[in-house]
Design a protein around this nucleic acid. Structure first.
Length: 908
RNA sequence: GGGUCGUUAGCUCAGCGGUAGAGCAUUCGCCUUACACGCGAAGGGUCGUAGGUUCAAAUCCUACACGACCCACCA
């Protein structure tokens, strides 16, 4: 017999081991002659997902738990439906993020990666990665994920390296990848260039410094306004709008740059906004994108005063060289103030671009980098979207996604770090000179040879000495190939044939552009197909105050702790039920309690059913004589059928939260609160055939509900389903192999639902009366009913057993004359009066008060309906069915009102 | 500067054209032999504001306010 309270851990461990031992989630491709034959259609069509590979930076967080729970729901659901399902596990090497983690570890040992050297550093990374993968994959298994463990992939293993090299080669051959000199986003902390989307903008407090730039002859010159005074040391011009009347005479004049003493020119450029600041803009071509462009237009010199490591260069001048950016800013401001050039300082909050990995301000920097041309790649992705070959769920993401694709700039893919796929390009030392070894990023127009290994000889000069490009590729470059690299593309593998394109991609909106869009583009460019036709984009898990979880805020929730404390199923369920399409999830620990209670409810309802199955035998609804079913059976089966269809409909529409809610409501509010209570009447009775009928329905409905719930709560449902197996007759070893719950034929039953509504309304009214009049819970009461329509009277007479059991009655009888017994309280429901004689229990004043409150509510109710019924336009224009419904509602409310008032009149 | 989404019970959120819902919290009563991680009952909302469409609006439209997020090279 099961325990009173569900203990999750042993159950989870048991089934995790069983699933693994059975290799349950492995899926083999079905060999076909043609990649797109019928095997990909109909029932045999595989359902395929690739996991968004977590970075090997540590352990999983709640966001991963949500993402993978959602995927697991679809994987298990599709398996339950009988489709071959392949869900690929894996991890991402995570480029900068992972390298940063290692660098922190090194720092603790007072080491740097440079001290170790590239080779040793990478060796350490490999060790770390191995550990981390074990942790992450273990956590995914703990979460219950139905992943095909034999197909685990890593974005930097040999197969994925092949894919990366092939992709680079194809892009190279199509001239879609190139090396060029650009202003790039440089992170001085990470020591690398970043792509545009890896820069995040943050509103930060700052100042607008107004600095006087005197004319070269010493007379008064313009005042410029800047948020970055330290860059003035690299200024090579001041720009004004040529149409600005204030500065008409100034263009072409020479100014003396304060502190530096250099002479710089005033140029006229349309870019300058006369309205902003003073209308005069200091121009630092080396450290600002716009200034760079102005510099290009006016052929200005470029003076780099900040080095790639964020310190001032020699060009900044003797007093500044070696200072950090921040220190240099303070000193420049101080020096300007002392020298009398600082005219004004204003508080000025403005947005600052920061590194998405380390939050340090980005330094725009001119350098030679590798880029992917995006225009050609974006076009097919847009077409796929517009033609419906790719859809986003919820649809609200479609527009932002489309807009993003339409204004893409080239993607900087080279990173000056060590952890990643090395760029497969080599340079001839003879052609480029020794400088290629040290000043790689400053060498213009270097011509490389595309090759994974060192080339034999230079095609230009025949030289045999080469250096490989020192950079690695953006981690997102390999991620973009993931949906096909996991199947060992470019190899023409059976897996690729059978599983690709995949079916669905589930991920959070924070990587829609970084990842989803790039997979679409790369998939189309390299395989000619959309890598997945549908993508479910969910929200992110926040803390209970709606704040993003972060280590620095200390509001991070550890999924393992939650799973230990409340059970994995409860944890999963609490995430899913809040994962409404397009919404973020405010995560509070208290919300898991509800799901934990639900798991316990499941546990106990199964316990109850098992307790009432005295002999081991198989129950089957199909074998049951349908005429033996009574009202509550017909009702619960109809409700069950509706719930199953609702759940499937919601899952098919990628709304698992609504599906979970439907299951929760059905199981708890309908099955447990009403059906089980009513089934007890027969179970505890003496009529054996009736007992058997109730048992059959209990087994059918509970068993099926457990199966439908399995994708959401895999462990407990597996356990309970197994316990029920001797009675449900299910042969399959595991729920996912048992097929979806399906009723034989149609079990909808409008009549039963209407009758049960009546019964429930009467029971509720009687319970309410008892509670309000403080009738002792142990006291069985007598009830006399009066009035009502013939069919309702007949129904209540027939199902007096229901009323007696649920409202705790001693007896209920109908009075033809409608006489109210003395000292009785009155409940009104179903257009009838229910008199409850309560001599000695009832207090007349109390009952009058109660009736007045009821009348008050009934009045408000009736008033609303009356407005509708008195509205001629409504009667004339609303649909007939609507009018009839309103009339019925009005009549019922009217009847209720009359009965209550009549009762009150009699009492007073 | 554009764009998206939100504003519903004390809290967190469903509902998205026909008398306002859930969970949690609150109050009252119950250890009723499945479950106190439970059962029954109750209180609590002019559905952000102002207009409009409609017989009918929390639900559709238009403004506005507030909030969040995304995008954008404004010193």
């Amino acid at each position: 017999m099961l325990d009173k309270v569900y203990t999750s851990r042993p159950v989870e461990d048991k089934w995790s081991a069983s699933w693994r031992a059975a290799d349950l989630f492995h899926c083999d491709p079905v060999p076909t002659t043609d990649a797109h034959s019928e095997s990909r259609q109909g029932a045999g069509k595989p359902f395929v997902m690739v996991i968004p590979p977590p970075n090997v930076t540590g352990a999983l967080h709640v966001g991963h738990a949500l993402d993978n729970t959602l995927q697991d729901i679809f994987a298990r659901y599709q398996r339950l439906l009988g489709r071959p399902v392949c869900w690929i596990p894996g991890t991402d090497h995570g480029g900068i993020a992972t390298q940063s983690v290692m660098e922190k570890q090194l720092k603790a040992e007072k080491l740097t990666r440079q001290m170790l050297g590239r080779e040793k550093f990478l060796a350490r990374m490999q060790v770390w990665t191995k550990q981390c993968k074990t942790t992450i994959l273990g956590q995914l298994e703990r979460l219950g994920c139905a992943l095909d463990w034999r197909r685990e992939a890593f974005t930097m293993d040999a197969d994925r390296a092949d894919a990366v090299h092939e992709a680079f080669k194809v892009l190279w051959e199509k001239d879609l990848v190139y090396r060029g000199e650009r202003m790039v986003n440089w992170c001085v902390r990470c020591g690398t260039a970043l792509s545009d989307i890896e820069v995040e903008f943050e509103e930060r407090k700052g100042h607008l410094w107004h600095i006087h730039y005197p004319a070269a002859d010493g007379s008064r010159g313009p005042v410029v306004a800047t948020t970055r005074p330290e860059t003035m040391l690299g200024d090579t011009a001041v720009a004004v709008n040529p149409k600005d009347p204030r500065y008409q005479g100034l263009i072409g004049k020479s100014l003396r740059l304060p502190l530096a003493g250099r002479e710089i020119l005033v140029v006229g450029d349309e870019y300058v906004d006369s309205e902003f600041g003073t209308g005069a803009l200091k121009v630092t071509p080396a450290h600002d994108l716009n200034d760079f462009e102005i510099g290009q237009r006016h052929k200005l010199a470029s003076v780099a005063v900040i080095s790639p490591d964020g310190h001032m260069t020699a060009a900044a001048g003797a007093g500044y060289e070696g200072l950090s950016r921040e220190a240099a800013r303070d000193k420049v401001v101080e020096d300007l103030k002392v020298a009398g050039f600082l005219e004004k300082v204003a508080d000025y909050p403005h947005s600052v671009g920061v590194c998405y990995r380390c939050n340090q301000p980005i330094e725009p920097m001119l350098s030679w980098q590798w880029f992917v041309r995006m225009e050609e790649l974006a076009k097919p992705a847009s077409v796929a979207l517009d033609s419906g070959r790719f859809r986003l769920y919820p649809d609200s993401w479609t527009k932002p996604y489309r807009e993003w694709l339409s204004k893409l700039k080239d993607w900087c893919i080279s990173r000056q770090i060590w952890w990643g796929h090395r760029i497969p390009v080599w340079y001839c030392v003879k052609c480029h000179g020794e400088r290629i070894r040290t000043d790689f990023h400053q060498i213009a127009g270097a011509r490389g040879v595309l090759s994974v290994e060192a080339p034999e000889s230079c095609p230009v000069c025949g030289g045999i000495e080469f250096v490989q490009d020192p950079d690695v590729l953006d981690t997102w470059f390999s991620s973009a190939l993931w949906p096909f690299s996991v199947f060992r593309w470019p190899g023409r593998t059976p897996e690729l044939k059978f599983f690709y394109p995949t079916s669905l991609l589930v991920t959070g909106y924070e990587i829609l552009y970084l990842w989803v869009a790039r997979m679409q583009m790369m998939g189309l460019a390299l395989t000619g197909e959309v890598p997945f036709p549908e993508s479910l984009i969910h929200g992110i898990v926040r803390d209970k105050n709606g704040k993003k979880m972060s280590k620095s805020l200390g509001n991070v929730v550890d999924p393992l702790v939650m799973m230990d404390k409340y059970g994995t199923d409860a944890f999963r369920f609490s995430l899913v039920i809040q994962a409404h399409p397009g919404k973020d999830i405010p995560f509070a620990e208290s919300s898991i309690t509800g799901s934990r209670n639900f798991a316990n409810k499941l546990w106990n309802s199964t316990r109850f059913v098992l307790m009432n199955l005295p002999q081991t035998k198989t129950y089957s609804l199909a074998a049951l004589d349908r005429r033996r079913l009574e009202l509550c059976d017909r009702w619960i089966l109809a409700e069950y059928q509706a719930a199953l269809s609702q759940v499937r409909q919601k899952l098919d529409a990628y709304d698992p939260a609504a599906a979970a809610d439907a299951l929760y409501g059905f199981l708890w509010d309908k099955f447990c609160d009403w059906y089980v209570e009513l089934a007890k009447i027969r179970l505890q009775g003496k009529d054996e055939p009736a007992q058997e009928t109730a048992r059959a329905v209990l087994v059918e409905v509970l068993g099926g509900t457990l199966r439908m719930l399995h994708p959401f709560m895999p462990f407990i449902t597996e356990e309970l389903h197994a316990a029920l197996k001797p009675f449900s007759g299910v042969k399959a070893a595991f729920v996912v192999e048992a097929g979806p719950p399906e009723l034989p034929g149609d079990w909808s039953d409008v009549e039963a639902c209407r009758e049960m509504d009546t019964v429930m309304a009467v029971v509720t009214a009687l319970r309410s009366l008892r509670a309000q009049l403080n009738v002792p819970p142990g006291l069985k009461i007598d009830v006399v009913s009066a009035g009502g329509s013939a069919d309702v009277r007949e129904l209540l007479a027939k199902r007096a057993d229901y009323l007696t059991a649920l409202a705790h009655l001693r007896d209920i009888r109908h009075s033809r004359e409608g006489t109210r017994p003395a000292h009785s309280a009155t409940a009104v429901a179903a257009s009838m009066s229910f008199y409850v004689p309560l001599e000695g229990v009832i207090d007349l004043a109390q009952e009058c008060g109660r009736l007045r409150r009821e009348i008050g509510k009934a009045e408000a109710d009736l008033a609303k309906l009356a407005i509708k019924m008195e509205n001629k336009d409504f009667l004339a224009r609303a649909p007939q069915a609507e009018v009839e419904l309103a009339r019925r509602q009005y009549d019922a409310a009217r009847a209720r009102m009359d009965l209550l008032q009549e009762t009150l009149r009699m009492l007073s």
